[in-house]
């Protein structure tokens, strides 16, 4: 019995030691300390938000993100939500696209010329603006409305998409994210149907991805999950993207926003 116990202790120790050794972010985190390069995206995003641009030579400061025109702080914690002017449920990114079009006359195609940055010379304005807006909600608790019928419908649709198995590999979001305590290779997988995991996952996006040298938003996270699911290309701000975000955001209700964070 004693031998079994010490073997168990030893193997637990060995497992944690080897997991540390191959943690690719440990060195980087040590070098960076508390400094998160996401700061550069936040600063650039704030400048883009306040700069008069587009055919209408206007800035975005009068954009209504759900808390009224010009109110930025705390807005992300209540998104996605229904907007009467578009008669649609919108997430943060699709709402920014609406504001850029109505206030500045900049089309979504123009805003999404670089949809996702490449960590180098191709920079995404949407990633910067999203980083800025989310940073102003740091510390706010997620509180997503289910009052409007379209909000409820978006959640229900998002839940269906989460479980939708398809493609060459029969994968759905649920294949990897509907059970607790699982991992893929060494990467822990959040159970996005369980409150604690769903909160922890949602409140830490957007994030600066060390391995990519790039700030990534929820729109990117979903797109890249679907790529690995062997699905085609999820369109930015599409009905499916917003509905799935609604499902994830509502499941994270009560979680306190930490983003932008830093991830491997």
């Amino acid at each position: 019995m004693k031998r079994v116990l010490s073997y168990l202790l030893l193997s637990v120790f060995a497992a944690s030691a080897s997991a540390q050794e191959i943690d690719p972010t440990a060195e980087s985190r040590e070098l960076m300390g508390d400094d998160n390069p996401a700061f550069f995206w936040e600063t650039r995003g704030e400048a883009l938000w306040k700069e008069a641009r587009g055919p209408k030579k206007a800035n975005l400061s009068q954009c209504d993100l759900g808390l009224g025109k010009g109110v930025v702080a705390g807005a992300y914690a209540k998104l996605p939500r229904f907007f009467a002017d578009t008669a649609k449920v919108q997430d943060l990114e699709s709402r920014v696209l609406t504001c850029a079009e109505t206030l500045q006359g900049i089309t979504p195609a123009e805003m999404l010329k670089v949809r996702f940055g490449n960590g180098d010379d191709q920079r995404s304005e949407m990633e910067a603006i999203t980083a800025y807006l989310v940073s102003t909600s740091k510390g706010a608790a997620m509180q997503v409305s289910m009052k409007h019928p379209k909000e409820k419908a978006a959640y229900a649709l998002g839940e269906q998409i989460f479980h939708y198995r398809s493609g060459t590999h029969d994968f759905s979001c649920a294949t990897c994210h509907a059970e607790s305590g699982k991992r893929i290779r060494l990467q822990a997988l959040p159970n996005l149907t369980a409150k604690a995991d769903a909160q922890k996952a949602y409140v830490t996006w957007p994030a600066y991805r060390i391995s990519q040298g790039e700030l990534r938003t929820m729109e990117w996270r979903l797109n890249d999950c679907f790529r690995q699911q062997r699905f085609p290309d999820l369109q930015y701000g599409s009905e499916a993207a917003v509905a799935l975000t609604m499902f994830l955001a509502k499941n994270a209700d009560g979680g306190v926003l930490e983003a932008p964070t830093m991830k491997r």
């Binding site: 419908a153 229900a156 649709l157 269906q160 998409i161 939708y164 198995r165 398809s166 493609g167 060459t168 679907f226 062997r230 699905f231 085609p232 290309d233 999820l234 369109q235 599409s238 009905e239 499916a240 993207a241 509905a243």
Partner: peptide, 26 residues
């Protein structure tokens, strides 16, 4: 009738590389 999830997916994705919209048909 619930929102037709297959229809929404067809409208929300675009073909890219080798992954066509047929991948969304169950």
């Amino acid at each position: 009738p619930e929102p037709d999830v297959a229809k929404v997916l067809q409208q929300s994705f675009k073909e890219k590389g080798q992954a066509g919209l047929d991948r969304l048909q169950q």
